[in-house]
Design a protein around this nucleic acid. Structure first.
Lengths: 206, 206
DNA sequence: GTCTATATAGGGATAGAC
DNA sequence: GTCTATCCCTATATAGAC
């Protein structure tokens, strides 16, 4: 474990973490090369093995970090104390913004979990993942109070995540299939930040 | 190119295609092993190189096949002559059914296109991919005739695809995050086959 | 067409100098 | 802590017998 000297802009371990994150998220575990991570970090390949004993170790460190970030971003929004409709507006606007800057993360997560569902359960625990209990209660309360229609909170949550995440994670594919250029697609996504909230709110309010 | 004898249940080339499809879709290009494909097909590894000259060749054959299948499935529904609301109901019911049997396909496609967007454009052309022009016209006509609200057909299409695809492609991830068991999740997906159509139709009809 | 045996390269991992 | 050199296994690919 290297000592964190105070003046250097980025200590080696951080250089490695950032580079590994960049490469793993784009290439996946099996597609990533330790040499490429070293190049990206501007250090020697052997150093990777000095700081993290193996490729797998390094991967898990990255993976847990990604989970923690998502936990912080999504769950904290969903479980916040905002008014329901404000929360929905905030969710789409804020979360799509995050996704735009991390467009490879969802496909990375799904791809890795798909071939390793069992083992990665441990990483979920390490990242402190919890259900959005407060959000679910909030929906159920809204239904009971007659403020919104009788919706299943889990289905609503699935819809929200789908509508926000899919068009961004599948951007290269969709642009290819529908023959849309970069600028047009950005415009489409930008509109979704507000229109999705309008649509969802309109569909559940009484 | 082997002659297709008429009596054998599956000629070798088909055995290879099926096995390669199975393995590539689950592991991705970089995660797949030619040995595993050979085992899955029940043949010798060298035969893979006899029929397809390289791993890359075999991959492209599979990839184009997957694109052709999707082209046939989705675009043909969207461009059919059905009434709009019937079409939406049919789309969610039928397409989610297909996705349930091919749950790894979307993540596979996205993952491969993400790291190879440029090269794979050729495969799109080979697969004969076209835009759902008829569907888009149908929406615009519905809007003009005042039958449905003023919706952007591309946004509507994105929403339909997102709502259908994401919860299935992300199933292992979501089950992990939300702590849902297999049976409950299947029930949730089953409900979506009809509820999504109800929801979308309700939100666009005047 | 199908097999066994083998060549060749790539990439994870370690040894050891500084 | 960081580098160079190297080990060694794995995976793609080929040669050649049958």
């Amino acid at each position: 474990m290297p000592s964190s000297s105070k003046q250097e802009p980025l200590v080696t371990q951080e250089l490695i973490i950032n580079a590994a994150r960049y490469v793993f998220i784009r290439k996946g575990y099996s597609g990533a090369r330790m040499q490429e991570i070293a190049d990206e970090a501007g250090i020697n390949k052997a150093l990777l093995f000095y700081y993290f004993r193996s490729k797998e170790n390094l991967f898990h460190a990255i993976f847990i970090g990604v989970l923690e970030q998502i936990q912080k971003e999504i769950i904290s929004i969903l479980n916040s104390e905002m008014d329901l409709f404000d929360k929905l507006r905030f969710f789409f606007n804020f979360y799509i913004g995050i996704l735009q800057k991390n467009s490879f993360v969802p496909a990375f997560l799904i791809h890795e979990v798909n071939q390793n569902a069992q083992i990665l359960v441990d990483d979920f625990k390490k990242a402190g993942f919890t259900m959005p209990v407060h959000f679910i209660k909030q929906i159920n309360r809204g239904v009971k109070q007659g403020r919104i229609k009788a919706v299943d909170p889990v289905q609503l949550l699935l819809n929200m995540l789908s509508l926000a995440i899919y068009p961004i994670m599948a951007e290269p594919l969709i642009k290819g299939v529908l023959n849309i250029d970069d600028d047009s697609y950005n415009e489409i996504i930008e509109k979704r930040k507000t229109e999705l909230a309008d649509w969802v709110i309109d569909s559940i309010k009484k």
